[in-house]
Design a protein around this nucleic acid. Structure first.
Length: 206
DNA sequence: GGTCGGATCATCT
DNA sequence: GATGATCCGACCG
């Protein structure tokens, strides 16, 4: 029998509540469909059910912010912070996008949340968005609707003010996949997942 | 209804 | 100085 590890460092245990995301980022991207994202800011609760995701596979993924050609930088550092960490970045200088880190500490893999079915705080989301419709059907839009910005980078999604709550799994028959949107490298990697036929999800290119 | 280009900035070359 | 994991308003059929 092997010697029992004694240092605290060796007890690298995946928290129970993240068990369903551990091990395989592509599977995690599928399993995040049906889960709920909730933000509670200034006493206002807003949130929705995840209906579209994209997996980004870290070092070996040319489309990932943490591809080996870039290394660990201040921008992508939150991707290295471990399972259940929120990674936020600014896109095109205007929009914020929100990712769930799905790798253990040091493994920079993550899932981009691309669309939600709004479920809580519709009025507050509409106010933040400055319009009544198109609240969460796009990565920049949902970040704005939930009030999430760079200051939430590194946040632990197990606790407020931004929480990821596990939902009932979406059956395989209801899950569609396609290439990722808006990337210029590894376009054909089938790492986008979505709830088939959902109105917040734009038709895939293929 | 569809397509086009501007906005705007952290990051990297 | 160029590049985006984007959105929106303007314009054209």
């Amino acid at each position: 029998m092997k010697a029992r590890a004694t240092s605290a460092d060796s007890r690298r245990v995946v928290p129970r509540h993240w068990g369903y995301l551990a091990g395989d980022t592509v599977a995690a991207a599928r399993r995040l469909l049906g889960c709920t994202l909730v933000s509670t800011l200034d006493g206002v609760e807003t949130g929705g059910v995840i209906v579209e995701t994209e997996a980004y596979l870290g070092l070996k993924d040319p489309a990932s912010h943490a591809h080996a050609s870039k290394g660990r930088t201040p921008r992508n550092d939150a991707m290295f912070a471990g399972l259940g960490t929120l990674y936020v970045y600014v896109s095109y200088g205007i929009h914020h996008c929100l990712n769930v880190v799905t790798g253990e500490a040091g493994d920079p893999v993550a899932v981009l949340v691309r669309a939600l079915e709004p479920s809580t705080g519709l009025d507050a989301m509409a106010e933040r968005r400055g319009r009544a419709g198109d609240l969460c059907n796009g990565p920049g839009r949902l970040a704005q609707a939930l009030g999430i910005t760079l200051r939430h980078n590194y946040h632990d999604l197990a606790r407020p003010p931004v929480q990821l709550v596990k939902g009932a799994p979406v059956s395989d028959a209801d899950v569609g996949s396609s290439g990722r949107i808006g990337v210029s490298r590894a376009e054909d990697w089938p790492l986008r997942f979505f709830v088939r036929g959902h109105p917040a999800v734009k038709a895939p290119r293929w």
